[in-house]
């Protein structure tokens, strides 16, 4: 088995298994440890310039990647007209640079602010490095290997789809430039790190908030006869 097979054929499954198993274990047995670990209380101004571009830039791009993965044909049709291709590429690059600016500010903040330094764990720095590498390699691809949204659907999507369909084809990645290999590999590392680090807060995106009633009343006693069905609940089990 070549290194390429190991990194791009086997490791993605190791990362995926870690992601699922460890996340479930952590959610089930250590729910107290799951938090966004916000540090806005300790430092606010730089967080604004870092956190907002970073989160919005990165999550929008991530959604774009998913769309490309799910409906590559749609991308191809969209990119049929050059103007639309330019528009998509420019938007992607702008978002990438925006996210890069954000993580730059966040890294600066984490290294230079005494309070943030004091509450940073080693894993915080590891996460920062991996995510920065991910964004950096993405921007590198966008600049150095232009029109990724055009060639990506035929060059890159088949590889990711092969992983997702449990029919890994790591050889698809072998001939690709280093920047693309780096971008793909750091994503698997990102997934593997997620359950062990603060990144786990991604899965807690509280979309349920949109539909839940404003108030929550919880009863400590088991007497369902008196619950008001619309707004009261028995003490729920976390597990």
């Amino acid at each position: 088995m070549s290194t390429n097979d190991l990194l791009f054929g086997v490791f993605p499954y190791v990362a995926g298994a870690l992601l699922v198993v460890v996340t479930v274990i952590r959610w089930r047995f250590r729910p107290f440890s799951i938090s966004s670990l916000s540090s806005q209380l300790l430092e606010s101004r730089r967080l604004y310039w870092g956190s907002v571009p970073f989160h919005w830039g990165l999550s929008t791009i991530l959604v774009g990647h998913f769309v490309a993965l799910i409906i590559p044909r749609g991308f191809e049709i969209w990119n049929g007209a050059p103007l639309r291709l330019y528009l998509l590429e420019a938007t992607g690059l702008a978002l990438g640079l925006w996210a890069a600016f954000g993580i730059g500010v966040l890294a600066y903040r984490r290294f230079t602010n005494a309070r943030i330094r004091a509450v940073s764990s080693t894993m915080d720095f590891v996460v920062l490095g991996v995510v920065a590498l991910q964004i950096f390699s993405g921007v590198w691809i966008a600049v150095g290997y232009r029109w990724g949204s055009f060639w990506g659907t035929s060059v890159f999507v088949p590889y990711v789809r092969s992983i997702l369909t449990f029919d890994p084809k790591p050889e698809y990645v072998d001939p690709l430039p280093f920047a693309l290999q780096l971008h793909a590999f750091t994503f698997w590392v990102f997934l593997a790190l997620m359950p062990f680090t603060r990144l786990v807060h991604i899965i807690t995106l509280p979309l349920g908030y949109l539909t839940r009633p404003w108030q929550r009343v919880v009863r400590m006693r088991e007497s369902p006869a008196v619950y008001h069905p619309a707004s009261e609940k028995p003490l729920e089990r976390q597990h």
Binding site: G208, Y209, R212, R216, V217, V218, M220, Y227
Partner: peptide, 8 residues
């Protein structure tokens, strides 16, 4: 997150 509640 719906983490805060009022005890009935």
């Amino acid at each position: 997150s719906g983490a805060i509640y009022k005890r009935g």
